[in-house]
Design a binder for these strands. Structure first.
Lengths: 145, 145
DNA sequence: TAACAATAATTAGTGTGACAAATATAATTA
DNA sequence: TAATTATATTTGTCACACTAATTATTGTTA
């Protein structure tokens, strides 16, 4: 048997993260939000932090730049966001939400909060503190200084 | 501000899971294992549970069937695994590891265990108990009976 | 036993993640 | 200021996740 318990922890972590995302995505589809979970995350981040560059936005969303570029492409195709060129640096751009994007946020934010709660049932404040501390410890262990 | 703390938990979970996988994948690449992390997980599962069907193996690996099919395709291309047809049910097949696959397991298993440990530094037995309990609670919350 | 339903596996399509390379522009320096 | 270096973004490629559709085969029932 090669099954060291550490392998098991990786497995549990990966499996749970996928389940959380999948559960949300199913709800998004059922309620016809016309957004994926990741598109929603990015749209919400643009809404809360307008006028950032691609690079800054990627950092905030916890995604790499190419991934963010492609998600923005899709949000623009759906007319929820737009790229505004930077006045003095033509390499750069600023990400903005559109009116249609804001409306979408207003429409679905409460519903998202609603079914997101399902994941955290049967857990208390102390559990959340452990959860945050332990996962952040793991993250820091693997992030070079 | 729409930033309910529950969104934050999803973010931390997703970010940590990706970091753990990415860290391992980088080590796999550096040491030229000629496997992705997921291919390794599947190969190890086949090794430990020989002669299961695609469906059963997918269940054990925590992956869906199409994903498993493609990972197996890649393992077969690398000659680490093979599909054997079921004697009485021609729809079904049995997954087996090859000699070359077994050699690969023997070669890299200790090395994997080695750098996998990096993720779990600064955590004690009690933390692991919390980790397992909390993540499994979340998973169960989202898995219909 | 012929028609229908169920099952195992694969294929197709879209989205995301990671990494490298390419492109365009700006900043620096010789 | 011409050449070089650095930066912002996009494009290309491969792998994985998920859903739906397809194919092949087996089981069930009228």
């Amino acid at each position: 048997m090669l099954n060291e318990s550490y392998n098991q922890y990786s497995f549990i972590l990966d499996r749970t993260a996928r389940k959380v995302k999948q559960y949300a995505q199913t709800a998004f589809a059922e309620q016809q939000f016309d957004l994926t979970v990741d598109q929603w995350i990015v749209l919400r981040t643009i809404y809360e932090n307008p006028s950032l560059s691609n690079k800054e936005m990627a950092e905030l969303c916890g995604k790499d730049q190419p991934t963010l570029t492609r998600i923005i492409d899709l949000l623009i195709k759906k007319e929820f966001a737009e790229r505004i060129s930077h006045p003095s640096d033509r390499r750069s751009l600023r990400l903005h939400i559109t009116k249609k994007g804001e409306d979408k946020i207003q429409e679905i934010a409460p519903k998202v909060a609603d079914f997101r709660m399902q994941a955290w049932k049967n857990l208390n404040e102390e559990d959340f503190a452990h959860f945050t501390r332990i996962l952040n410890t793991i993250y820091d262990n693997l992030t070079q200084k």
